[in-house]
Amino acid sequence: MPQKVQGVIARAKDAPVELTTIVIPDPGAGEAVVRIQACGVCHTDLHYRNGGINDEFPFLLGHEAAGIVEQVGPGVTEVAPGDYVILNWRAVCGQCRACLRGRPWYCFATHNATQRMTLEDGTELSPALGIGAFAEKTLVAAGQCTKVDRAAAPEAAGLLGCGVMAGIGAAINTGGVTRGDTVAVFGCGGVGDAAIMGAALAGAGTIIAVDVEDTKLEWAKGAGATHTVNSSSTDPVEAIRELTGGFGADVVIDAVGRPETYKQAFYARDLAGVVVLVGVPNPTMTLELPLADVFGRGGALKSSWYGDCLPSRDFPLLIDLYLQGRLDLDAFVSERIGLGDIEAAFTKMHDGAVLRSVVVLEGTTA
């Protein structure tokens, strides 16, 4: 039987979000219904509300989530009812050219649930990143569920579903940070601080955080930055060179996603160094660089999709590190809120007042 639950939707561009009743169908082949325990408020959700992703309104928002599998459809073997899972938005297909070449983290045919959740009047909803987890329950493809240790607090674990994984993966998976490397990170919000944590986990010797706000630079120190640069008053390229013996950093991560910060990242790296773009630019942005500099400086310019993660591999590993006290996911949780508080959380996020507001639903003990 279809279920009626409470969920938060964006009905029209730039309109305030609404808490309303949504209808969850029974899971079909390859699908699962998940009872949401916690879901982070990510900047991508605000992009959806503001029409910055596409115009397929109304959207069911939310995607950084952890919860309990309640039902599964025919043919599902990955998870079973009662499993504690983190949701991901890139369920790999196993059949595309990337998967068949042994690179499933680049899967070109990731998938979501086939059926749509709806409003009570039958209006189909577009779930944010194929998840839609600002709701008591949601319908996803079973491959979007990654089983993890149920000892992990859901408000922390769910953050691996997007921003934290994107940052950690940008450093470790995409950037290839290793022992003794020098690393610079532009932008010290949730993704940037996660990149700093990832660099520290990998054994980087010098980690330089760059931002225009002193508050965020203090957050970066807590994440593991060894040095900070306020780029509103200091040239970050010169500062990074000075802190790295005049050479530049081995790996520079742009967690902002603007042409200005990307150029700074490009020139702040050492010869043959790596630049990683993990901040998401808007479609109107363009970049101009002297081709001779691109050639002459060597190295690699990379984009990081979701931290180039493989959820089945990375989520359980990172949860284990969290439970061992080696990865402080709790540090990202600035506040715990209810489903009715999301519009206010968007304002706090836009103002840079929080790393993550996390919606916590009842029954969050895994």
Rank of each mutant, 00 (worst) to 15 (best):
Leu217Trp: 10
Arg49Gln: 15
Gly51Asn: 06
Val8Trp: 00
Thr21Ile: 06
Cys162Leu: 05
Arg35Trp: 04
Gly198Glu: 06
Gly190Met: 14
His350Asn: 13
Arg49His: 12
Met285Ser: 10
Gly180Pro: 00
Tyr267Ile: 06
Cys309Lys: 08
Tyr322Leu: 02
Cys39Gln: 13
Arg297Cys: 02
Thr364Tyr: 07
Glu136Ser: 14
Gln6Gly: 15
Leu327Trp: 11
Val79Phe: 12
Asp328Tyr: 01
Leu139Gln: 05
Trp105Ser: 15
Ser233Asp: 00
Glu260Gln: 15
Ile53Lys: 06
Ile342Leu: 10
Thr261Ile: 11
Ala91Ile: 11
Cys96Trp: 09
Arg258Thr: 15
Met1Thr: 08
Trp89Tyr: 11
Arg90Asp: 02
Gly352His: 08
Thr228Asn: 09
Gly189Val: 06
His350Asp: 14
Val358Lys: 00
Pro290Asn: 15
Pro74Phe: 13
Asn50Ser: 11
Leu287Arg: 09
Ser304Gln: 06
Asp55Gly: 03
Thr364Leu: 08
Gly67His: 03
Met349Gln: 12
Ala220Arg: 05
Asp254Pro: 07
Arg97Ile: 10
Val34Trp: 11
Glu343His: 12
Ile172Tyr: 09
Val8Lys: 06
Thr114Cys: 00
Leu100Asp: 10
Arg326Gln: 14
Gly169Asn: 02
Leu100Lys: 15
Gly122Met: 13
Ala65His: 00
Pro311Ser: 07
Cys42Ala: 09
Thr284Cys: 01
Ile342Thr: 10
Leu301Phe: 13
Gly52Asp: 03
Ala200Trp: 04
Ala200Thr: 05
Tyr84Val: 09
Asp330Cys: 02
Leu125Met: 13
Ala268His: 13
Ile9Leu: 11
Glu362Asn: 07
Glu335Phe: 02
Glu242Leu: 06
Ala170Pro: 01
Leu61Ser: 07
Thr228His: 02
Asp214Arg: 03
Cys42Met: 08
Leu159Asp: 07
Val140His: 00
Arg313Cys: 04
Pro104Glu: 04
Pro74Trp: 13
Lys13Cys: 09
Ala345Met: 15
Leu329Cys: 05
Ala345Tyr: 14
Ala91His: 05
